[in-house]
Amino acid sequence: MKQINIIWGLLMVLTFATAFVSGSEISYAALLIIGIAVLKFVFVSFEFMELRKAHILWKYLVLGFLGIFSMLILFIL
């Protein structure tokens, strides 16, 4: 139960970090924003949806989707 509270805290920190990055003039801001979104996606799927308890195939499928999606977005940008 404690771990899920920590994950929620991290998700909030990452959400505020996204707001900070998007409002700043940091170079590679898009890369950071997508990176943070990927991290949040992993936390929600692996911890809230308990994917970490699932068969490895499901983990690879989720991570594979995320990898291809984020690479495509960053490549086109």
């Binding site: 996204t18 998007s22 801001a29 924003i33 997508i34 929600v44 977005i73």
Partner: peptide
């Protein structure tokens, strides 16, 4: 319900930020 979260986590940065 979590799927709605996941979709929003992709929509928000792309539509509102990048």
């Amino acid at each position: 319900w979590h799927m709605c979260d996941l979709i929003w986590l992709l929509l928000f940065p792309i539509i509102y930020l990048i």
